[in-house]
Design a protein around this nucleic acid. Structure first.
Lengths: 211, 211
DNA sequence: GTCTATACTCTGATAGAC
DNA sequence: GTCTATCAGAGTATAGAC
């Protein structure tokens, strides 16, 4: 990739990423991508034959940028609480650098679901490892019981949705860009606090208070 | 509206809603809307002049369908815990009936943010009332402290994102449509449990255990 | 590999008959 | 109000020179 940094194909991919992420597959214009890359429209077709194929490349590339975080929490063998804290921290940083990606992925994926399924499997996303970990930690009395589905959906929703609905929340709260980013950075602590709090076995259970 | 139910304008709006929600502004075709409505393309322009104007009508209509839930939690004078339970219950039902709306609203809004801001204000969405309620309940010792922003973002994210990312989660967990809907219905209880749990003042505070 | 020029299709919008 | 026919523009894709 070191020598490819300045070649045309790389320029095109960078330009296409910007345009597709902002406008989507339907909204993007090949002319706009060409302008952004500082080249001619015909050259896009020379490298990627069709708009569709160019889009596929971008979609895959963007998706792969976000997969490692998900894979890590699904597969690593750190304690669950550590994983949750680490995920929120890493994922929100990644999102702050790519604030328009959630919308892009979610929207284009729903428009064409087939594209997604295989890609996820290929990345090694498998909930069973995390499911086993939860089971072990429940049995060890470290956490309350929860399904892997609810845990993952809660965690990802709390991290990602504030980006997807950024403008909606901004206008709802009368915040500007900067204030909202600060709000989100604070959530790197708030989200694990919320989730871990709900998983911690309460010391004041009925049978404890009688004992 | 009773007599308008069967007139052409209503047919067009219903058809346009379906198509725009599935395909977005850019992806939708006037021809497809006409087909869906069982009329001619020219008639669309007779009633709504441009695609853009037709889209505006749909966007406003759809948004207004979702506003009341938000307004209710922002303004009603029920106890906070009751509001949270009621919101999750009502909102998720609404979403189950309109599963593609979150994507539509979030995506088209981010494409054209100005459209949104005035609309929200017009609906009477004002976080200050809820902010005051939180303050009162904190002072009364009913709940832990939380910002209105974090509370609303948590609540809405947990309810809405599972719809926006439906396909992603489905394929991640290997669930089919029906299983996933059941999962979401269960969350009508899970979400309030999570949020209310985090707001409940812990009886086992440091100074309590010493007392 | 890169460009200019152009072919061709799709689609939003209009004209005009009924 | 509703239709058929058609225009005008935009946009993807290709041909062909350099």
């Amino acid at each position: 990739m070191s020598e490819a940094d300045h070649n045309t194909e790389h320029e095109i991919l960078e330009a296409a990423k910007k345009v597709f992420i902002r406008k989507g597959l339907d909204g993007a214009r090949m002319q706009e991508i060409a302008d952004e890359a500082g080249i001619n429209k015909a050259l896009l077709h020379y490298y990627f034959r069709t708009k569709e194929k160019l889009f596929e490349s971008i979609f895959t590339q963007v998706l792969q940028g976000f997969a490692p975080c998900i894979v890590a929490i699904m597969t690593s063998d750190l304690p669950l609480f550590t994983k949750i804290e680490s995920f929120a921290d890493t994922y929100i940083d990644l999102l702050l650098e790519n604030p328009y990606v959630p919308n892009f992925l979610v929207n284009e994926n729903n428009r064409n679901p087939e594209r997604f399924v295989n890609m996820l499997k290929g990345q090694g996303v498998n909930p069973n490892i995390l499911r086993d970990q939860i089971k072990r930690e429940v049995e060890a009395g470290i956490i309350c019981d929860i399904t892997v589905e609810n845990l993952m959906v809660n965690l990802v929703s709390l991290c990602v949705f504030p980006f997807a609905a950024r403008n909606i929340f901004c206008s709802m709260f009368g915040q500007n860009e900067e204030e909202y980013n600060m709000f989100i950075r604070n959530r790197k602590k708030e989200i694990p606090k919320l989730i871990i709090g709900s998983l911690q076995p309460r010391p004041n259970k009925p049978h404890d208070s009688v004992a």
